[in-house]
Design a binder for these strands. Sequence first.
DNA 1: GCAAGGTC
Length: 646
Amino acid sequence: MVHILNVAEKPSVAKALSQVFSEISNSHVQNDAGRSTYNRIFTVNNVNIPDPRQRNSQPQHMKMVMTSVAGHISGIDFKAPNNKWSACLDSDLFTAPLERTVNPLFLDLKRQLEEQAKKAEILVLWLDCDREGEAIAEEVQEICCSANRRLKPHVFRAKFSTVLQGEIRRALNNLGRLDMKQVDAVNARQEIDLRIGAAFTRFQTKRYQKKYGLPSVISYGPCQFPTLGFVVERWARIETFIPEQFFTIKFGMKDPDSPNREISFQWKRNRLFDHVCALALYRSTLQARKARVLGTDGRNQNKWRPTPLATVELQKRASKYHRLASEVTMDAAEKLYQAGYISYPRTETEIFKPEFDVRGAVEVFRNNNLWGGYARTLLDNGKFQQPRNGRNDDNAHPPIIPVKSVDPAELPDVAQRQVYELVTKHFLACCSMDAKGQQTVLSVKMGTEEFTAKGLMVTEYNWLEIYKPYERWSAGQGILPNMGTGTEFEPASLIFESGSTAPPSFMSEVELISEMDKNKIGTDATIASHIKTIQDREYVVKEGQHFKPTKLGIALVEGYNSMGYQLNKPHLRAKMERQCNQIASGNLTKTNVIADVLREMKECFIKVEGEVNKLDAAFARHFSSVVDQAVLVKRAFSECKCGRSM
DNA sequence: GCAAGGTC
């Protein structure tokens, strides 16, 4: 039998793929330990597939050996001696030689791949079908082919996005080759990020860490800095906010059907900033004495069920509903995934493939303590709906769903219980019907001014039933009376009010995640870690659900801004992303992009060094005095109300 | 002691 080595990006995919191989071949999966504790080796014999080495070959029995890696196996760093901080000028880091080394954690894994490669005639790369996956595939190819030179011409790439039998069959019949353009795009990104990050980080740290007694390195990175930028920008808007007085008219009507209830209306002009004008309108309204009904508009309205859950949305909703920090959410999700309770938690996909057995996934919950009743209503009462599609698809992972039914009380900690509950409720909500309601809009006119009241009556809760208490459909003021057009009445209240515009709040975690997502800062898998980084570096602090920049964070952003560099803005990263995409599509070469971006950033770096007095000034402004014992003491102690240190 | 991207 021809011996094929197959490698997946993570153990769970290796396991699932070997399961499919066994279904295809009707033979069992042999599950062996490898050198690497987490990466098992699965063997399935007699898998009937065409030989990829020959054109139009007839299917024949193959021995499939399947194992996995765990993300990138190797990384780049500066070659000695420049990995030491004082070995070279910081500006030399833009050109200093680099080397690729295997992550020391993965030496066992590397040996495992080498040993397996020696036994194989063909290598099939089953890494995730995204850009990073292509780069990891190249790392696997490099290790395997170094161990077994004969393998080189017989390396193939499998294209798949979900581990479903039909798709895997298709992939096996259409094995392709590695796409080096995508690999180049990733390698360009790696090199650029390292050089820029290291140069600025060493420069900032050496200049300010000791001087101001700062606790950690003062890192710079193309993702962490824009993340900080969003928080600082919001702070600046609050700082410069000037409140404005506004005026409005409050209008209330007694409900003819239940006289104790007053229906409140919204002024069509909402609010005016001109006092004289607003007051004149109010007077003319008063003089009219009676209001007249312009019309009652009733219509059916649906509140749409949510779309399938992807990572960013999971983080936002966990923050909103359970007040979990994104990092905590991801940590809990990872544990739930490892324990087999939920599917893979890092995905951008909001669409289920047509072959995906969504109904079967609901079936899993039929006997669940808490949600079994709801699941049965979906399945047995014809309420089940195929989920509607969201917008995104990463072609690598399906949306996040629960895969095992459990009473959340049995899960080991609160965060896991909350994330599991959210994932499950969200999934069941996706498979439900939209909520239905009746909206009434009552509009009246008094003098020259118009007012409207809105009312809502929910007629069918459907998905909102399972999504309690996360979302409500704000019933506002229930159903409104149906009043004939032209009916005249005296308002129950007519009040002139003034108010004052308020500054925005500090940036919440939900807003920060949204900004990062929108501006392509980080990925589904890294957004949470960037948010953690700017806290670890003490650039921001979290108060409740909101982020406030520290003086260090503000000084950095202000300093670079004062030189005319908007390093805190997301477009630098976005531009580099676009260039990497061009490498992947073949419009630019890796060499050109790296040279281009680094030339520009080195120029920027040299100018920063030249105008460093501006950065110094920003630090001096925010760190009022040079660090002395008093400041250090203040850092460690807070002030008691008696005035002494606590 | 540096980045960001994978993942355990």
